[in-house]
Design a protein around this nucleic acid. Structure first.
Lengths: 205, 205
DNA sequence: GTGTATAATGAATGAACATTCATGGCGTGA
DNA sequence: TCACGCCATGAATGTTCATTCATTATACAC
């Protein structure tokens, strides 16, 4: 029987792909809950409802699995960044979109994204080293955004690198505030408040 | 021989105290470098130049040791907060002092303080739970500060809790910026820039 | 139904690590 | 000099956990 799907994948292969994804998602949940060293492969297996050995049919090692979780999220993040942020004409709007995106991914990936994202170099832990390239690309995008705003004369003259880090810090604070004092009600309101406050700073008056 | 010191401690006791402190400081360095699960008691022993068993003469367990490191830094932080921040008459000045303090402790405790401080609840890791009380007290202090500023009419009307989290986020971003792009030169300049930017926001115009 | 290929399983293995404790050394007082 | 405590020591112990692999189940072709 030949693969007749658009994707060029047989049912078998699609099933295999689904299993892989299920393991990845289970792993994400467990890593988020227990941290890298705190999670055992067995706990991931239980969460994914597979046997330990099966995990190893898909991933070379626990480390490989962790890296795969990171890369999946990192890639997703970068894609959304290009779709939602880099397409904005107006730099102010683009920065607003960064905050929105942060909230969106936080909702989708819960604690793991926070973990992934509070990023920066904590110690020289080789675990966090895996996240660094993403973090750096992200900062680079932000810097570019601000630079453009300055060049176009809509933002004040400030070190774009500095502002990039501030965007990061403020969106961290925003999600942390929400996580710790989730007023249940309006995340939207919070985001608008944050955007307004931040852009008031940046915009040329 | 009786204890004749002002402290009421014999030489023996003072020596014991020094050893305890040396272990604590070695542990801080290693935990900062390798993370909680990544550090072995043996690596701490080596760093402190004691044998493993000796560590256990001072601390019940690895966990106890880690908690002790946290509490030591947390207490120090709270003390400095009271000394440097809460004594400021002017609320703006007080918030400026928070940034200064953050930089000071970052310099003194290096990566560990960043680790300790990027705080908030990452997963439900019981390790980080130890930091939470300190984090909460800290946020409470900040909130009080802002509230006072608003009451006295020097700050705009904003949710003081929100501002408290923003102070936290911005000082994280500041130290991260410095850590990743340490221009060698002026941390002082960076702090002033950060203070000025942040307070411009907050101050009633 | 039988044979074959592919995937899932989980008990077994070995390494890493927290913790213990029997031993040894050193300073102090007699 | 000897005896007594107090620490320091690090080899030994038991546990936890990543990883392997021989076995079993499943799906499919004929």
């Amino acid at each position: 029987m030949e693969p007749s799907e658009k994707e060029g994948l047989s049912r078998k292969d699609r099933e295999r792909e689904r299993h892989r994804l299920e393991i990845l998602e289970a792993a994400e949940r467990v890593f988020a809950r227990d941290g890298y060293h705190g999670t055992t492969v067995e706990s991931i297996a239980k969460e994914a409802e597979f046997a330990v050995g099966t995990i190893y049919n898909f991933f070379k090692s626990k480390d490989d699995l962790y890296a795969s979780v990171i890369y999946r999220i990192g890639d997703e993040f970068m894609e959304e960044m290009e779709r939602d942020v880099l397409t904005c004409k107006d730099p102010s709007e683009a920065i607003g979109a960064v905050f929105d995106l942060r909230v969106k991914l936080d909702a989708r990936h819960g604690d793991f994204f926070r973990l992934f994202f509070e990023g920066g170099p904590k110690g020289s832990d080789e675990i966090h080293a895996k996240m660094r390239p993403f973090f750096e690309k992200y900062v680079e995008v932000l810097r570019g955004l601000v630079e453009r705003g300055v060049r176009e004369g809509v933002f004040n003259e400030i070190d774009p690198y500095f502002v990039a880090f501030m965007i990061h810090g403020v969106s961290n604070a925003m999600t942390l505030y929400w996580a710790l004092r989730r007023p249940g009600a309006s995340m939207a309101g919070l985001v608008e408040r944050t955007k307004a406050g931040f852009l008031a700073h940046l915009r040329r008056t």
